[in-house]
Structure formats: C-alpha cells, structure tokens
Design a protein around this nucleic acid. Structure first.
Length: 283
DNA sequence: AACCAGGCGCATA
DNA sequence: TATGCGCATGGT
C-alpha cells in the first residue's frame, strides 16, 4: 500500500480493488451521499471526507478542498485497506452464489466503522427500511452532533445522548427504538459497556471473543442477535461474524439447508454481504 | 392505500 | 424449542 500526500488531496494505492459506490451504499454504513462530481461525501470519526476511487487509486479530500482532516492511517483502516481481499475472494468464490454476486457487483469491502456509531446505527436499523434508517441517523447527527466546518455534523457521542430528556430524542422520529438508543447510550457512556474493550483481539480466539462481546451487547434492551452481530462485524472488527436478518435467513434456508459452506470460514461477514446484495437485488 | 421494513421482547404451548 | 404478536413510523 502506498500513500501520497498531494497539496490538495490524499492518494492511496496498491491495496487491490474497492468498488466505492457498492461499498458505501450497500447498507453497512448510512452516512454517505453521492456528490455531483461522482465522488461520495461522508463523515468518519468526526471528519468530513470526499472520496472517490479512480483507476485503483483511492482519492480523498476535505469536501471544502485540500487534504482531509482525518489521518491517512485512519482512512486506510476505515476502508480496510490492509486486508488481503484478493485472497479472501479466492476462498469465498469457491461458493457459486458468492462468485456470481462478485462478478455482478464487484469488490465490496467491509468498512471498519467507529464502534458506537455502528452500534447505534444498527439499533435504529431494526424493522426499518434503509431510506428511513438514513433519515433517522441524519436527523440524529444534525440535532445532537457537533457542527463541522463543512456544515455536516459528527455522530453524537453516547454521553451527549445519555443526557437527553426522552422527549428531546423524539425529534428524530425513531419510534420505539428511541428507548433502546437511550439505554445503549447510558450503558456505554457510563462505562458499564466498554466498546473499545470488546474489539476483536489481534491474536487469540476470535470466536470466543465474539461470543463474549455479543453477550455484552445483547444486555442492552432492544439489542438481539442480529443487531449485536452487525455491531461485531461493522464496528468491532470480527470478520467471521455472519449477521442473519430476514433476507439472509430466507436465502440461507433455501441455499444452505445443511449449514454454511466451509469456504466462508474466516470471512463470514464478507460472504454475508454478497448474499445480502443478491437477496435485495432479486426481489 | 395497504403492506412492509438489515428485529426484539414477551407470552404461550 | 418454536411460533405469534405488538411495537412507532413512514417508504413504496
């Protein structure tokens, strides 16, 4: 991987493939929008970013122009550029369904999102459609996040949300999920749940750590297996976790009645994303 | 204008 | 363990 700092932009290359639109708009992250010039604008860890992929080069700017305010290291981490997707896809494509989806959609990467944002976002996602999920999260940020130089807002931190009166949270129109958000915010901001401590360990036993972290997340009201697993996969770095929502359940029951293919092992989350894309596309 | 949405908690059998 | 229901709101 190579990082070039040009006067007006950051260029990262040598990481393999990354289908930008697919990755940023497939329902794993909810704060990206397409800009007029074909790039994507979003907010990552409190920094506004403008992103595009041009001939294998990830080009990142501050939306106002110039270098992004987020470090190259954190940008590379967010897009999971250090992981060998070519090898992962060689394994996953042994499965015909993933192979077909890869050829059709291109190289999706599993974003490594800020843990609290992922947790809160997937609490909001339950029994909801993607358009409204984005709307509620946008409202949550605009109302309670910090105003950034380009006019966007950061994702509000758990302490801020924990201090709100329940009626104040009502403006985001999250319905019955509002009390779940409030419970999660209280438990995270008070330290009862330490999200950083739940991250996937570098060595050791990822399955055991995932099971333990999942149990902790599910102690929050309104957080079941699916929301917990999305948090593990998208926010806490557990690549092998395979979230099962209504679409995936239907697909798995039909395609893999005797269990998931062994070739998914180690990258279940990435495999799940391809099955999710397929399930949504043929409806 | 019904039906449905990247679920979950709870009751019941 | 398995099934069914209500939940709050708005997109399609």
């Amino acid at each position: 991987m190579r990082i070039d700092k040009c006067p007006d932009r950051l260029e990262i290359s040598g990481f393999g493939e990354l289908a930008a639109e697919l990755t940023l708009d497939c329902g794993q992250a909810f704060r990206w929008s397409r800009a007029g010039d074909g790039s994507f604008n979003g907010v990552v860890r409190g920094s506004e970013l403008s992103v595009r992929v041009d001939d294998g080069v990830l080009v990142v700017r501050d939306p106002r122009g110039g270098l992004p305010s987020l470090s190259a290291e954190l940008i590379a981490d967010y897009f999971d550029l250090g992981y060998d997707y070519a090898s992962a896809m060689d394994r996953l494509r042994l499965d015909a369904n993933v192979d077909r989806a890869y050829l059709r959609f291109g190289q999706l990467r599993v974003l490594r999102q800020e843990p609290w944002e992922a947790f809160c976002s997937f609490i909001i996602s339950q029994c909801n459609n993607i358009t409204r999920i984005k709307g509620i999260i946008s409202s949550l940020c605009d109302n309670f996040g910090e105003l950034l130089p380009g006019g966007n807002h950061s994702f509000p931190d758990p302490g801020t949300l924990a201090r709100l009166d329940p009626a104040e949270l009502g403006v985001i129109r999250a319905g019955y999920r509002a009390e779940y958000i409030a419970d999660a915010a209280r438990r995270v901001s008070s330290g009862v749940i330490d999200l950083a401590a739940l991250r996937c360990p570098d060595g050791g036993d990822p399955d055991g750590a995932a099971a333990s972290a999942r149990e902790t997340l599910m102690s929050v009201r309104g957080v079941g297996r699916k929301v917990a697993d999305c948090t593990l996969l998208f926010g806490l770095g557990y690549r092998d976790v395979f979230p099962v929502d209504r679409h995936i359940k239907r697909a798995v029951d039909a395609l893999y009645p005797d269990g998931l293919p062994v070739c998914f092992r180690g990258d279940g989350g990435l495999a799940q994303q391809y099955l999710f894309l397929s399930a949504l596309s043929d409806k």
